[in-house]
Amino acid sequence: MKKNSLRTLLLTGIGLFFMAFVFFPPFSEAVLKLLFPGVPDRLYSRAPLPELLLEHFLVVLISEFLAVLTGCTLGIFVTRKRGKIYLPMVQSLASMAQTFPPTAVLALAIPLAGFGFKPVVLALFIYSCFPVISNTVSGLNSVKGDLIEASRGLGMTDNQILRKTELPLAAPVILAGIRTSTIINIGTATIGAVAGAGGLGTVLMAGLIHDNGAYIFTGALCAALLAFFTDKLFALLDSRYRRQP
């Protein structure tokens, strides 16, 4: 118990720091002044930090939402009787795509789709689909045959079996896939700044180009904390889900 409350305290502390750093410029100014006393221009001025965070968040949210929608649908389809014929195709495509570095997929999509917000969302969407597909398929396949048999014996239709038996049992695995793909997504979105998607990567890249440590630090810290807390959110969701009987 004691250890747990210590962890909660630590997490809350980091969370408050993050909030203050993003939304309260005098605070971030003070922190950066402490860390980078020699740098004259410490605060990124071309866009406010909350706006960049929101932009980053939106890129991830939209692409991930579409990926979950597509990935789950496709994963369910190929595990039904009607779509079973496509299972090997989808599986080999998903496992191959996942060995590709996400940056490579982003870079490949840009010349085809162009620069900017939408093309980056498109690229992130495509890449994020694959972990979701893989985990949906393996989650649904891990549901034991006798449970499905038993559900059928209770008089459930195929649709009811999917909703009441298969999906709830596969949910933790599917959730794990969404978690993985979201975390990769946040990281790749940071690089998306190179392709003009905006977001926290913009500050970081500006820092790298102008050799400004404070910019680099600001962008890196915010991106890292965004990913960290998103992951913690998923962990919370996961434990909530598992605690249910």
Partner: peptide, 17 residues
């Protein structure tokens, strides 16, 4: 585990200063 969640570019960036 937490290290894995940090975006690669961000981890590079944090180490630079």
């Amino acid at each position: 585990n937490s290290l894995q969640t940090i975006p690669s570019l961000a981890l590079f960036g944090i180490l630079i200063p």
